[in-house]
Design a protein around this nucleic acid. Structure first.
Length: 191
DNA sequence: AGCGGGATTAGC
DNA sequence: CTAATCCCGCTT
């Protein structure tokens, strides 16, 4: 559990690459000295202001300012008036990109469901106060420990961004194959 | 100052 | 399918 946090350089890269590379790694939140940890099994990449599904596509605002800041920080926002979503800022400062963490497989001290961005934040105890938190610090971070075995990674369009035209169809969602904690609609065998 | 809508979830 | 529920960002 004492593995170091991923360094800032990890996040300062191509956003889709970071989204893939985060899969299988362990997200840790230390609450009152007690670590809560889960394995990241589902992510989505939001590429920047040109990406019409990204919050940054409407330019820098008070809400999304952290996205335009330096990489390796947490972008946390409230959605639908009742849930929080946790992102990691990526690319060089000023770019306006982030990776949404959508689902965890519980590792330690994560009771309740963790499959879905809102549930993930609830289980970890993440809310608005963590917006802007430096992920290279000791309280909220992703372990630098490399996933032990090779991962089977699948892709799909991102969830809930149908308004984004062609960008909605891009495969910028990444998840571990056959992992029961992955959220969203499973592909249905119809035809 | 008012209003529309959202990177979701749960319940009918 | 739709309500819940609050903050933000844009319009008036």
């Amino acid at each position: 559990m004492m593995a170091p946090a991923l360094p800032r350089e990890f996040y300062q890269r191509d956003t889709a690459t970071v989204a893939r590379d985060l899969l299988g790694r362990t997200l840790v939140h230390v609450v009152d000295g007690i670590p809560r940890a889960g394995r990241i099994v589902e992510t989505e990449a939001y590429l920047g202001p040109h990406d019409l599904a990204s919050h940054s596509s409407k330019g820098r605002t008070e809400r999304n300012a952290v996205m335009f800041g330096p990489p390796g920080h947490a972008y946390v926002y409230m959605i639908y008036g009742m849930h929080f979503c946790l992102n990691t800022v990526t690319e060089p400062e000023g770019h306006g990109a982030a990776v949404l963490l959508r689902a965890l497989e519980p590792v330690v001290n994560l009771p309740g469901r963790t499959g879905g961005p809102g549930l993930l934040c609830r289980a970890l105890g993440i809310d608005r106060r963590w917006n802007g938190c430096d992920l290279t610090g000791p309280d909220l971070y992703i372990s630098a420990e490399t996933p032990p075995r090779k991962l089977r990674i699948l892709t799909s369009p991102r969830i809930g961004v149908d308004y984004a035209g062609a960008w909605a169809r891009r495969h910028l969602r990444f998840y571990l194959a056959e992992n029961p904690f992955v959220s969203g609609k499973k592909p249905r065998k119809t035809a």
